[in-house]
Amino acid sequence: MIQIRLSGSGGQGLILAGIILAEAAVIDGKEVVQTQAYGPEARGGSSKAECIISDEAIDYPKVTVADVVLCLNQESYNKYGKDIHADGIVIVDTTLVREFENKENVLALPVTKTAVEGLGKAIFANIIALGAVVGKTGVVTKTAIEQAVLARVPRGTEELNRKALALGWEMAQKAC
């Protein structure tokens, strides 16, 4: 069983990223539960999506001890960045998380910067981050995540999103 927590602020597309990750797990034939927590506002505020992926039926639907944590802003790093399994991995977006402990299990990547510079829009940060999470951890297969991304994104943006996923994947691979 792998417990994944995607955190950041509202509007960064983290809940969509959680759904895509969960759908990739379904494609892989795994059991999966996805939940979220967010404030009442649609933009700003904190946002958190969780996925539990397992070969067996999942009882408790929330993350107890995270194996993978993604932090897309400083507040979420402060809250969840250290709340992790001993062998867990933390992925931080260095564009928005300035202060973090650069330990061995921390993968520091310029996610939002890459989105803006590589694809022209910060909104691709969530898909780049997904690429990085999967590239680093292999929680789902590369073909499943690609299929899941393409099934969810707006028509006409498939190529940009495919590219975003690849950018994240490569960044994570390079850093490994």
Partner: peptide
């Protein structure tokens, strides 16, 4: 809210 908003396979 748990069951209503949770997604499962």
């Amino acid at each position: 809210e748990i069951i209503g908003h949770m997604r499962e396979k």
